[in-house]
Structure formats: C-alpha cells, structure tokens
Design a protein around this nucleic acid. Sequence first.
DNA 1: GTCTATACGTTGATAGAC
DNA 2: GTCTATCAACGTATAGAC
Lengths: 211, 211
Amino acid sequence: MNTKNNKAQSTRQLILSAAEQVFARYGFEGATTEKIAQQAGLPKANVHYYFKTKENLYRKVLELILVAWMEAANAFDEYAEPCDALSCYIESKMQFSRNRPYASKVWANEVLHGVPILDEFLKNSLRDWLENRVTLIKGWIAEGKMRAVDPTVFIYMIWSVTQHYADFDKQIVLLNEDKALTDEEYRYQTGQVVDLILNSVGLQRPVSQVR
Amino acid sequence: MNTKNNKAQSTRQLILSAAEQVFARYGFEGATTEKIAQQAGLPKANVHYYFKTKENLYRKVLELILVAWMEAANAFDEYAEPCDALSCYIESKMQFSRNRPYASKVWANEVLHGVPILDEFLKNSLRDWLENRVTLIKGWIAEGKMRAVDPTVFIYMIWSVTQHYADFDKQIVLLNEDKALTDEEYRYQTGQVVDLILNSVGLQRPVSQVR
DNA sequence: GTCTATACGTTGATAGAC
DNA sequence: GTCTATCAACGTATAGAC
C-alpha cells in the first residue's frame, strides 16, 4: 500500500507539474486536458481520474503556487535592518522568478483575468502579509532608517519589477538580441534591481555585499 | 457611399473596442466571438463579416494597442533634462494604465503566452525604441546628470511598475479594502512612483512640481 | 450590411475493457 | 490504476434569406 501510494503520489505530482507549465503557456481556457496529459506523457483520462475536473486541477496548481510564493516572501523577515531585509527579499523574489517562471505566469494570468478563482486568498493571507510589512516599513521610516515613502506603493514596485522577469521573460529575451539571459547576466541584473530599489528609499548596499 | 463607409467604420470600431475588453478579460483562447458580439450588441456573424477570423480580429486589436503604446512612449522625449523627461514618461505610462487598462492587459497576455503573434514588432519597433533610450540614458550618465545604473534594467523597472497598475488592478483593489482607487488616490500613487524611480537614480523632483 | 440556422471541429468528461 | 472509445457541449466559421 505504501508503494502504491508513492506511485500514485508521484503521478499526481507529474500531472501537477505538467499542468503548471501548460496553464502558464496557454492560460486556463487555452490549456486543454489533452495538452496537459501529453506534457505528462499520459492519456487524458488519467488526468481526470486524478483530478476529476480541469478547474479542480487548476485550483490545486494555484494553491501550490501560493504556498511557494508565501515561502519566498518570508525572506522579508530574515533580517532586522531595512537594507538587509530588502536585499534578501528582492533577491528571493528574483530567484523565484528565475526558478519558477511558470508559477509566476499562472498567477499573473489569474490576476489579469480578474482573480476568478482565488480572491478569498487575496482577501486573507496576502492582505495580512501586506499589512504587516507596511507596518514594519512605517516603523523603519519613523526610526529614520529609510526615506519616507508610501510603503504600499514601494512594495508594489518590488513585486512588479521582480515578477516582470518571469512574466515578461519572452519580451526580455527578444530585446536581448533573442538570447536568454545567462546565469551571470541574471545575477548582474538582480544586483541592479536591488541597487535601484534600495536607492529609491535612500539606502545603499553594504560595500561588502556588492560583489 | 460616404455615410455607408462611416457606418461600417463605426461598426468596426465598436467591435474592436468590444474585442479589446473581452480579450483582456478572458485571454485569446477564452474569448469567444459570441462574447465579443454580445459585448458589441451584435450577432456573432457580424463579427466574422467584418474581421473574417477571430485571430485576424485579435491581430488588429494588438496593432491598435501598440500604436497607442508607442504614442504614450513619446513622452520620454519631450524634455531634455533627465528629471523632466523621466517624470513626464512615467506619468504618461501611469495615465495609459489608468485610461486603457484593457489594452495593457491584452498586451500582457500576449507576452505572457510567449508573443505568439507579434514578435516581429518586438524585434523591430520596440527593440529600436529601447536601444535609443538606452543610448540617451548612457549620455545622461556620462554627463553626470544621473547615477550610473544599467539603463535597460532601469527601463524594465519603469515599465513593470507602471503596467502593474493596469495588469494587476484587481489585486490592487482587493488589497485596498476592495475599493477601487479614486482619481485622487491614483494621482497620489503616481506621484509616489515618480518619486521612487527618480530617487533610484539619484534624482529629485523639482519642488515646484511636487504639488 | 444584418441576421438565423447550421455544419464541422474541438474539448471536457465518462464508460468500460484490461 | 491505466488505457481506448465515445458522447454531449461548445465554438469557429459559413450559407443563405432578408
């Protein structure tokens, strides 16, 4: 029974992973259970066997993405000083965009189309997360540790820039002479993003961390 | 014949406008000619009469969006000094996000799904536009008029933040206690965005323009 | 140019053999 | 649990009356 469960679990995982890619590439409507099955190397009946409906599968994919997104967001709280906390958070988000571009795109798609499925999540976890970080940033500003800016707008800037690297990756490649960014180039651009955002609130990266 | 043409033209326009909304809301695959027709208050056969195929209609919608996008981009060149040019450009992009949220979303969708239709545009107009602005910014840096940053990353930051206000508007509303941003709030956030981006390259808004 | 009716393909989902 | 065959619903596109 254990091995059976493992087999079943790994097939589920295979389908979820295939689904993430296909939903990212074609959107919810454009994705077909056939394409997802093909990507997973299975007949499409199996997809329905494991997840019943396409919408249910989509829901599960979104949930997993949100868990991963929240985990990456924890990087915000690893350091007490704004400079370190922000650097760490931005780098974490940039890594997420690099490692999980499909996840970011599925999420972008969902929001773009009006959050039809997951607004209750946004109304709870994400709203709370934002509220807490806003309070934290207001504290930093009150202590004179960073320039007085609107914390919400500031966080939107961090989100949008970092997610741009996943959601608009095709555009970035096309504007980069049709060449994908190398790891080296991505590290460099990550550094630039950190630098720009820190400076926007009057902070600077400790010299020791620049390279 | 003139009146006939006018009638036909206005019906075309009606369909194009309806299509922009529906493509933004449902994506290319999710949009149906039926929905578009309904939005325009016509039977769906008329949509095919005017545009033959759904893909052809989508192409026309995208082309119009790109024309509008490029027009908004001209704001970059209205002033010679970086501070004025950047303020003007950012405000222009923020206005575009406010006034044409559907346009921005259709574009985001297209890029998200890998630019299946319009990569030749990106390879030409947009690439040229970016290259010229990069050169311009490098000039400003060489003259010591702004901090030395990577111009491409800097422009990506401007694009992503400003477009975030259109593409993620539903998320912004949900995080704003479910209330749409008022004109006043939008003006304020626009000001914050300008302030953050200028500061990121060591510039400051002339006091006279702050309010 | 506008509309109704319809043909034809695709897709989500299930039945049922293995 | 896995696969093939199949159905019902839907969506693009067109034919043809007005």
